[in-house]
């Protein structure tokens, strides 16, 4: 089953990338997430592994994932190593006026689970879709607030310099 959510953020791709490439930030904006822990020595970049769990219905589902694409400020993708079969992807595309189109996709399932697997994927879809929708909204809020905070700090610094 594949679900996704997209949003326009009033900030350049670099500002969005700063958030989505940092494993320590995930619990702050990813809706439903209960764990996003670094596994191993590598915290970022291609090949980094995380243990992620997201609450859906009666269970926290997820497992060990590995980053398989890490194209700075454009694409970040992961696939599952253990646990639920899943592939996730962030797509960032620059838009005019320092804006960024952000898309989050997640496909999931359990290979070999048959009819019940098919059914469970569909029953879970509204919850997962809602999590993704809230995630991009929360990401937008965090990135834009951070941008605003930085602009204010820069203005203050400029005023202090002029005085």
């Amino acid at each position: 089953m594949r679900v996704g959510a997209a949003i326009e953020i009033s900030a350049p791709p670099e500002a969005v990338w700063e958030q989505i490439s940092n494993p320590e930030r995930y619990l702050h904006f990813f809706s439903g997430l209960t764990r996003w822990e670094v596994v191993g020595d590598q915290a970022r970049g291609l090949g980094a592994r995380y243990r992620m769990l997201i609450r859906v219905g009666s269970a926290e589902v997820g497992g060990l994932i590995e980053l398989i694409e890490f194209d700075e400020c454009r694409e970040l993708a992961w696939t599952s190593v253990t646990g639920l079969d899943q592939r996730g992807r962030w797509r960032l595309r620059a838009r005019p006026s320092h804006r960024t189109h952000v898309e989050l996709r997640l496909s999931y399932g359990v290979a070999g689970a048959g009819l019940f697997g098919w059914l469970a994927e569909r029953v879970a879809a509204p919850t997962v879709r809602e999590h993704l929708k809230r995630t991009v909204q929360q990401l937008k809020r965090q990135v834009e607030q951070e941008q605003s905070r930085r602009r204010t700090a820069a203005r203050r610094a400029a005023r202090a310099g002029a005085a």
């Binding site: 359990v110 048959g114 019940f116 029953v123």
Partner: peptide, 12 residues
């Protein structure tokens, strides 16, 4: 692993 979706449906 393959039976987890069935359990999840029932439990949820």
């Amino acid at each position: 692993r393959e039976s987890l979706p069935r359990q999840w449906l029932l439990a949820s």
